[in-house]
């Protein structure tokens, strides 16, 4: 057995937009898993906390040639250059950090003091601020999971790739004497719930895992890749207009770009 305690991993997702139907199950699976609060009026989407949010894109053509495509957007868990994620570099409280063991960008809510620099730095709007204390109607706090602390007013929160599930899976594996997790032992809630099987989760640098091959698909693209955020969410779409929507392209420019995770 090697001395190395845990081998470096880069957990990430490949989301097949050809399969996604926009049903929203990933959004609610995330809310239910992570004790995401809700309010009377959730129609102001700037204030509505959705770690996972499904956007609707369209090709901008007129009837009957319009096409629509749904795009689920969790936190991209950007690696940046060598772990310099946009949000991590601006956080004055080290409340968000790039974990080199898993490649997950953490959010430590008890350290966060709500300056919201990270929200400004995140090009994906993946971070949300708690403008109010969360309130559950009488009795409904019974449905809260002990694996994720409910957040208080004044802190920023975001998708953690269900890090608690990683911990639980790792503990279980360790109790069985294993130091490596099997591919589907650790899956985030959204991945597990997706009825269309559109989300695949795994270690992007492990040759034996599905995501390793899928990210090399010619249909693959990442969001705003040229900002250098090096996001760990890959999208697949067979439609050129969808791939174009993933970044700001000059009309004459072609899509298809550098892929970073090896």
């Amino acid at each position: 057995m090697t001395q190395e305690y845990r081998k470096e991993k880069k957990y990430g997702m490949v989301i097949d937009l050809d399969k996604c139907t926009g049903c929203g199950a990933c959004m609610v699976a995330c809310m239910a898993e992570n004790n995401v609060p809700f309010r009377d009026n959730e129609t102001d989407k700037l204030k509505s906390i959705t770690w996972m949010r499904v956007y609707q894109l369209n090709n901008g053509k007129s009837y009957p040639n319009e096409e629509i495509c749904y795009l689920p957007r969790p936190c991209m868990h950007c690696e940046g250059h060598n772990g310099h994620s946009p949000c991590v570099t601006v956080c004055p409280a080290i409340a968000t950090d790039y974990d080199r063991e898993t490649g997950i960008v953490s959010q430590i809510i008890t350290r966060c003091f709500g300056c919201r620099y990270c929200m400004g730095a995140c090009p994906y709007h993946a971070r949300y601020f708690n403008w109010w204390d969360p309130v559950w109607p009488d009795g409904m706090e019974k449905s809260l999971s002990p694996n994720v602390s409910p957040r208080m007013r004044g802190v920023v929160e975001k998708c953690t790739f269900c890090f608690h599930r990683y911990q639980l899976a790792y503990e279980k594996a360790a109790s069985e004497g294993r130091r490596e997790l099997r591919e589907n032992e650790y899956q985030p809630s959204c991945t597990q719930a997706c009825p269309a099987g559109a989300i695949t989760f795994g270690d992007l640098i492990n040759k034996n895992q599905a995501v390793y091959k899928m990210k090399k698909d010619p249909r693959a693209f990442r969001l705003l890749e040229r900002l250098g955020t090096n996001p760990k969410i890959y999208y697949l779409s067979s439609r050129e207009w969808v791939r174009r929507a993933g970044d700001n392209y000059h009309p004459d420019e072609e899509t298809g770009i550098v892929k970073n995770h090896r």
Binding site: C23, G24, A25, M27, A29, A32, M140, A193, C194, A196
Partner: peptide
């Protein structure tokens, strides 16, 4: 087969 919808997920609520 393992999938679930938004209503089913909201059952505890």
């Amino acid at each position: 087969n393992g999938g679930i919808c938004v209503l089913g997920l909201s059952g505890p609520q």
